[in-house]
Design a protein around this nucleic acid. Structure first.
Ligand SMILES: Nc1ncnc2c1ncn2[C@@H]1O[C@H](COP(=O)(O)OP(=O)(O)OP(=O)(O)O)[C@@H](O)[C@H]1O
Length: 703
DNA sequence: TTTTATAACATTTTT
DNA sequence: TGTTATAAAA
């Protein structure tokens, strides 16, 4: 077994943490202070001292994070640590509920609803109410957001909602009614949404002390990373899961998941919940240069909250961070692209650089520029490919085969057939749920003569699937694909891309022997969309998805009031504080170089065209901490100039006059039919016919 | 009455 | 880009 060199790889405080005696330990420390590394060494140390890996529970924010940590442990120990139970709270809860759920009435199969599934269900419930559409009920999205916030804080509607909410005309009774139906439907059909995973798991813990005893005795050591982003339910879960050897790690100034009920007070409360907690602070920063930390420290010091620490770097030297104002979004994209290329030419690989932004769609324009320049990139955050309609369709067949009572999946696949809408789908599914077995279900399908040929195809698909009950998930998916591939081209645009994504799902399924596990993981873990075999890639990411990671060079784009911070946070001071912490997280991802950029151009906002203002978190930062560059940057003047010229023509028709050839990334080549009116332009595409596009959303280029 | 085609519109963050 | 409100068609 390889000897681990603790002395040279950890400073004194870290060593103190790694060699902690049994009992509760809290490591609270700033960004880049080596918290994660400490946790990795702690796990290695435990295993080295003879603790069986499977009796260690490592809870992280994503499965990727825990896999990466365990990979490092394995490397250090030169042995496999497959046994360590690693993953997210949600995936752990799902595992526990599948084993013990029956004791609280949750019988298998248990299906996990992802966000889209939940939305669909709530949508159906609201529609079934047939209420006049007054404005006394939030739409399904807002409803679920609200509900999630409440559940994760352990609050009721009355407790959690401010008076003003109801004064705005929202009907409390309707909220409750929808919620009741939602809950009832889920329980009846064995469905669990994300929040249920936590709350039902807790319900189990509270009720079944035997289960708790068993689990907590089994997990000798429990470690939790990013504890500042846990909520009350998760904190309670931790209390049940451990008998006292618990180590949590986090940073109160990096708490960025308030919308999920997380609160940084949680980590500050930890010592109260576990009396006798050893508190260890790490003050030395190993990641960023001092100038970058100076900016981060100053920015967060303007906050109303007083966070617990200040960071000092061991790297004193470094380039100061730079704030670049650019005239238009295009200029911003061009600046970033150009700057990236420059660094790359200096020998910095793409994978050492990242572009960060507040919301997934903020990078659309940049993506076009990168594509044009042939810069390979991978995007994290924003829309996930498993939420695409075609993937949901495809998996619905598997869901039905696995759980014929999955009403939502049934309806989905029936609605794909021509001549079959929501109404009749619901009717057929109603029949289906009373059928006791597949024979009667298939017979039932053949009872609709008007849709005979279509339903016959579907029914023979299920015949095939049910005939081979022992087949692997992959085999089942391949059978389904044979059926679905005939449907796909008629359903959506871009069938080639969608086909690739489906093939990726099939590839993922190779690793699974159980359908239930496959489906669970697909809802609970982030799967990346397929891409070329490019190894060295630039990263584009939302700040949230960049948590815990680091790069040599960091760009943060769209630092304007309304985007970052998001306009939706402006009403609530607490949310605005979270935006500040979010920017703190973004800044502290950088090791050596940091660029903050924003386009000054007009944005459509609040019913009118407005000039962009620089994000107010950094507007007041003095020049010696953050160097300003205007649009007359000498190094890049030719660039700025060219985009400036093309933008000036934007005043009249943006260059999109009638007859102009244009290119759209989705629709390909086309010709302008009608020049822009109110930012909208009609284009005749060669392959897709006539379309009206919005210049601010459509990625239309002069071709 | 139900389904499909079309136009309009809005886009935070994640398990 | 994907959803949703509205109109046309089956
Ligand atoms: N004792 C050390 N000596 C040298 N480098 C270290 C040491 N500890 C950590 N590092 C390095 O510092 C960087 C940041 O460490 P790590 O990711 O563990 O910090 P963190 O506190 O978890 O950060 P964050 O709060 O952003 O998640 C990593 O590159 C890590 O390898």
């Amino acid at each position: 077994m390889g000897e681990i060199d603790y002395q040279n790889n950890l400073n004194r405080a870290q060593q103190e943490a790694v060699f902690s005696p049994d009992g509760p330990t809290l490591i609270i420390a700033g960004a880049g202070s080596g918290k994660t590394r400490t946790l990795v060494y702690r796990v290695a140390w435990l295993v080295e001292n003879g603790i069986p890996p499977e009796r260690i529970l490592l809870l992280t924010f994503t499965r990727k994070a825990s896999q990466e940590m365990l990979r490092r442990v394995e490397q250090m120990l030169n042995r496999s640590c497959q046994g360590v139970a690693g993953g997210t709270f949600h995936s752990l809860a799902y595992k526990i509920l599948r084993i013990y759920g029956a004791t609280i009435g949750l019988n298998r199969p248990l299906t996990v609803l992802d966000r889209k599934d939940s939305e669909e269900l709530v949508g159906k419930i609201i529609k079934a109410k047939k209420w006049d559409k007054e404005k006394d009920l939030p739409d399904k999205k807002e409803f679920l957001e609200l509900l999630s916030r409440l559940v994760n804080r352990g609050q009721t509607f009355e407790e959690g909602l401010a008076k003003s909410f109801f004064e705005n005309g929202v009907s409390l009774s309707k909220l409750k009614e929808v919620n009741q139906d939602y809950e009832a439907f889920k329980r009846q059909h064995g469905l669990l949404d994300y929040d249920d995973l936590l709350s039902q798991c807790l319900h189990l813990f509270r009720q079944e002390t035997g289960v708790v005893r068993k689990l907590s005795a089994f997990y000798q050591y429990v470690l939790v990373d990013e504890y500042q982003d846990t909520n009350l339910l998760q904190a309670e879960m931790v209390r049940y899961l451990t008998q006292g050897n618990i180590m949590v790690v986090g940073d109160d100034s990096q708490s960025i998941y308030g919308f999920r009920g997380a609160h940084f007070k949680n980590i500050l409360n930890f010592p109260h919940q576990f009396p006798g907690t050893r508190v260890i602070k790490l003050e030395e920063n190993f990641r960023s240069s001092q100038p970058i930390l100076n900016l981060a420290n100053r920015m967060i010091s303007y906050s109303k909250e007083r966070y617990s620490k200040c960071l000092f770097s061991r790297f004193k030297e470094g380039e100061p961070p730079c704030c670049v104002e650019l005239p238009y979004e295009e200029s911003q994209s061009q600046f970033v692209t150009r700057q990236l290329q420059e660094f790359h030419n200096q020998g910095i690989p793409w994978q050492e650089m990242v572009v960060l932004f507040r919301a997934g769609h903020h990078s659309f324009n940049l993506e076009i520029f990168l594509q044009k320049e042939g810069i390979p990139f991978k995007k994290y955050g924003g829309r996930r490919f498993v939420e695409g309609a075609h993937i949901k369709d495809f998996l619905s067949y598997l869901k039905v085969a696995h759980n014929p009572m999955d009403v939502l999946a049934w309806e989905r696949i029936l609605k794909l057939l021509e001549g079959l809408g929501p109404k009749r789908a619901q009717e057929i599914v109603g029949q289906m749920t009373i059928c006791p077995d597949w024979v009667s279900r298939l017979k039932c399908l053949s009872r609709y003569p008007r849709l005979k040929s279509q339903l016959k195809g579907l029914s023979s698909l299920f015949q095939n699937l049910v005939d081979q009950p022992d087949s692997s998930p992959t085999q089942a998916l391949e059978t389904i694909w044979e059926y679905y591939q005939n449907l796909l081209p008629g359903l959506y645009e871009e069938p080639q891309r969608r086909q690739k994504e489906i093939e990726e799902i099939i590839r993922v399924s190779y690793n699974y022997t159980e359908t239930e596990t496959l489906l669970g993981d697909l809802s609970l873990e982030v799967y990346e969309e397929p891409d070329g075999q490019e190894k060295d890639q630039l990263t584009l990411s939302t700040v949230h998805s960049a948590k815990g990671l680091e790069w040599k060079v960091v760009f943060i784009i769209w630092l304007t009031e309304g985007r970052f911070p998001s306009s939706q946070s402006m009403l609530d001071p607490e949310e605005m504080e979270e935006e500040r912490r979010l920017l703190y997280v973004a800044i502290t991802r950088a090791k050596e170089r940091l660029f903050l950029t924003y386009p000054q151009s007009l944005s459509y906002r609040g019913g009118g065209w407005q000039k962009n203002d620089l994000c107010h978190f950094i507007a007041d930062i003095p020049e010696d901490l953050l160097v300003r560059q205007g649009r007359s940057v000498p190094n890049h003047s030719p660039l700025i100039h060219s985009s400036y010229v093309s933008e000036i023509s934007k005043e009249d028709d943006d260059g999109f006059s009638k007859g102009t050839k244009v290119f759209h990334p989705l629709f390909g080549n086309g010709v302008i039919q009608e020049p822009p009116q109110e930012r909208k332009v009609r284009v005749l595409f060669k392959r897709y016919g006539s379309k009206v596009l919005h210049l601010d959303y459509a990625r239309l280029e002069l071709g």
